[in-house]
Design a protein around this nucleic acid. Structure first.
Length: 487
RNA sequence: GGCCCUGUCGUCUAGUGGCCUAGGACGCCGGCCUCUCAAGCCGGUAACGCCGGUUCGAAUCCGGUCGGGGCUGCCA
């Protein structure tokens, strides 16, 4: 039997990193087993579902490099993969379950339900509706025929229990005393998540349902619906949740949770994918950097962790740095370009693009996120924005003036303006004045880039060009003179 | 409150009765390298929640306890 998994997002928000991890695991499982990945849309919540969110989810998947074999866009045997387009089917199943006695029209009022819950809470019992007000079938039918609106509830067998083996957690049992007669079809005729999701899983012949642990308490309901439909039970696997540093389910209050925001903040798709894969799954070796091929090759639900995992931004950034450094230099430059233009607020001129291409490899070694690149090369494309702290740190001593003036004079006279020439000239300068590289070069760096932190100096000057370098050295000398009260 | 999941370094994890005086990775600390910052290299810090039991032997098995999390809607 071929493995069939599914990804059923409900488009009520941007693609969440936790959801991203869930899809990844489904995808890895499918690819590992040569199975089929189905992409359906759980949009039964018409109020909150939007097309914009669906687009974001699709883009997020593509960004991660996850594809699907059946479902929206690509189509498939089921034809319709949006739940909003399958409403008639859900009503049909609900009706069939009523006819077969697995479900019933319910006339309990919200007040009655509330009273029951309060009563149960007071008695220390499970607050579940056990169908005690269920009417005889004929009576219920008569009221429905008379035009009365009523939801359809599932008649959970009592006493009873649902037992299943979770692929990650082992055998799990749920006493039906704690499972209530849940609503299948709302009184307005729309299906609840439980009905729509379970029917789709049956209709699309899903064999493995890999989802978040938050759905664990709902599993008996889904298994019961499948049973009532006369369908074989799928294998369930519940993934632990992703949490923030405080241990609570990852949410907005922990910071960015959408995959999109990480992409926008300079995280590489391959790094995010690798990090998410390792967050809760171990390839079985000490490796942390794992190729996609290896993931597919080794993925196994039995090796997925049962514990919740804290989403550790620091480790993601480290991994992103590893991936950035492993990029082909040309590839790095082209991926970084949009971030530079974003930081600059304008597109780069052709000549500037060339300049960046020259210095890019040096920045590549230093960045953990693509967004850092802009700050590092800004001095090449804009006027110097002097960092006061940097200035204070290096312009204090008597060496500063000497280094600045000396550099200006020697570089002005320099023959060929290239890295080798610049380095030779400046090293000679240092020697002549008995300055250490550290003491002598920092003032020049700050004068030219505006900061104590920059790409290597000689290359930076080469790319900056003689005129701008000299201008900036003069400007710094002027500023130094003012600051020293010499003027 | 009820039901359920879960518990190895700060974090992610390896570990399925002896190979564990518990391994790796991130972080952190120190050193080397060095024109700054990174990167790289070397070294260090740090954990089996607790209490019982089973066993010649327990991180690994059992019970309890404490802690963390999830669910508890005619949301998904």
């Amino acid at each position: 039997m071929t493995v069939r998994v599914r990804f059923p997002p409900s488009p009520t928000g941007y693609l969440h990193v936790g959801t991203g991890r869930t899809v990844l695991y489904n995808w890895l499982f499918a690819r590992h087993h040569g199975g089929v990945m189905v992409f359906r849309v759980d949009d039964t919540d018409a109020e909150r579902s939007t097309d914009e969110y669906l687009q974001d989810i699709i883009e997020g998947l593509r960004w991660l490099g996850i594809d699907w074999d059946e479902g929206i866009i690509v189509g498939g045997p089921a034809g319709e993969y949006r739940q909003s387009g399958r409403l008639a089917r859900y009503r049909e199943v609900a009706r069939q379950l009523v006819d077969s006695g697995w479900a019933y029209y319910d006339f309990t009022t919200p007040e009655q339900l509330e009273a029951l819950r309060a009563e149960a809470a007071a008695a220390g019992q499970s607050p579940v509706y056990d169908g005690r007000f269920r009417l005889p079938a004929e009576e219920a039918e008569a009221r429905v025929a008379a035009g009365e609106k009523a939801p359809i509830r599932f008649a959970v067998p009592r006493p009873g229990e649902t037992v299943f083996t979770d692929a990650i957690r082992g055998e799990l049992r749920f006493d039906h005393a704690n499972v209530d007669d849940f609503v299948l079809l709302r009184s307005d005729g729309t299906p609840t998540y439980h009905l729509a999701s379970a029917v789709d899983d049956v209709d699309f012949a899903i064999t493995h349902i890999i989802r978040g642990e938050d759905l664990l308490p709902s599993t008996p309901k889904h298994l019961l619906i499948a049973e009532a439909m006369g369908a074989p039970a799928a294998v369930y696997a519940h993934l632990s949740l992703l949490t923030g540093p405080d241990g609570a389910k990852l949410s907005k209050r922990h910071g960015a949770t959408s995959l999109r925001s990480y992409r926008d903040e300079g995280i590489l798709a391959e790094a995010m994918r690798n990090y998410l894969a390792i967050l809760g799954w171990s390839p079985g070796t000490d490796e942390e950097i794992v190729s996609l091929e290896t993931m597919v090759d080794r993925f196994d639900l039995g090796a997925v962790s049962k514990n919740p995992a804290v989403f550790d931004l620091t480790k993601l950034e480290w991994m992103n740095g590893v991936y950035i450094r492993s990029l082909d230099p040309i590839e790095f430059a082209s991926r970084a370009l949009p971030f530079i233009e974003q930081a600059l607020g304008r597109a780069l001129e052709p000549a500037e693009g060339e300049a960046f291409g020259t210095i890019a490899p040096l920045v590549q070694e230093r960045a953990r996120r693509l967004t850092e690149v802009g700050a590092q090369v800004r001095f090449l494309f804009a006027e110097v924005e002097m960092d006061p702290v940097s200035w204070e740190a290096v312009m204090k001593g008597p060496e500063a003036g000497v280094a600045l003036a000396g550099a200006r004079i020697t570089l002005e006279a320099l023959g060929t303006w290239d890295k080798a020439g610049i380095e030779a000239a400046l090293r000679r300068l240092l020697e002549d004045h008995g300055l250490s590289a550290r003491k002598g070069l920092q003032p020049i760096r700050v004068a030219v880039t505006g900061s104590t932190v920059s790409p290597p100096l000689f290359e930076s000057l080469e790319v900056l060009g003689r005129e701008r370098t000299l201008d900036r050295l003069r400007a710094a000398e002027g500023r130094l003179a003012e600051g020293s009260g010499l003027q």
